[in-house]
């Protein structure tokens, strides 16, 4: 009798997935510095003093060191005048820049259209800004400019006044 032989074939497929360190953590640092805001107080107005126009007018120049110079047909009276002075306060180890008016500014005779032009603003803040030292938080900024005085018709006698804007910025 023929013997039936049943052969059993088994196929085994094994799959292994080896997962190691499927998660990792690292630490990052955070850093910032808080500094005081810039504050500015006007100590002195930019004052060209008393000026006499002797003809077609001229120009008065005041330097940041409060040195006054006249050109053209104007004379200066020997009285009080000054560069503009501002007490600047900022954080130690900071760099502060100043932006002066880039366009001519006007001063007006009270309630009239008579005007004087002021331009060429200049300060004693170094190019690139003022560097506060490690212990210094105050610095007096001086500002000069040029005043253009017209003839008698355009600039009758009186007190002229106006404003100008200076922007101080941390750099």
């Amino acid at each position: 009798m023929r013997k039936l032989i049943q052969l059993m074939f088994a196929v085994a497929i094994a799959t292994a997935s080896i997962t190691v360190d499927a998660q990792t953590t690292v630490v990052g640092r955070l850093n910032t510095e808080i500094v005081i805001p810039i504050t500015v107080v006007e100590n002195e107005q930019l004052n060209f003093g008393r000026v006499i126009s002797t003809g077609e007018g001229g120009m008065i120049l005041i330097s940041p060191k409060s040195e006054r110079l006249a050109t053209g047909n104007v004379r200066m009276l020997d009285d009080r005048f000054s560069a503009g002075k501002f007490l600047l306060s900022a954080a130690p180890n900071s760099l502060v820049s100043v932006l002066l008016p880039q366009t001519p500014q006007k001063m007006f005779l009270n309630n009239t259209s008579h005007e004087l032009t002021v331009d060429n603003f200049i300060s004693d803040v170094p190019t690139g800004g003022y560097v506060f030292g490690s212990t210094k938080t105050n610095f007096e900024v001086s500002v000069g400019a040029s005043l253009h005085v017209g003839n008698w018709s355009n600039n009758p006698a009186g007190v002229y006044s106006g404003t100008y804007e200076i922007v101080f910025t941390y750099n």
Binding site: G28, R29, L30, N31, A91, Y170
Partner: peptide, 8 residues
């Protein structure tokens, strides 16, 4: 470092 720099 995540650095925010200095602010006033």
């Amino acid at each position: 470092t995540l650095n925010f720099g200095a602010v006033a």
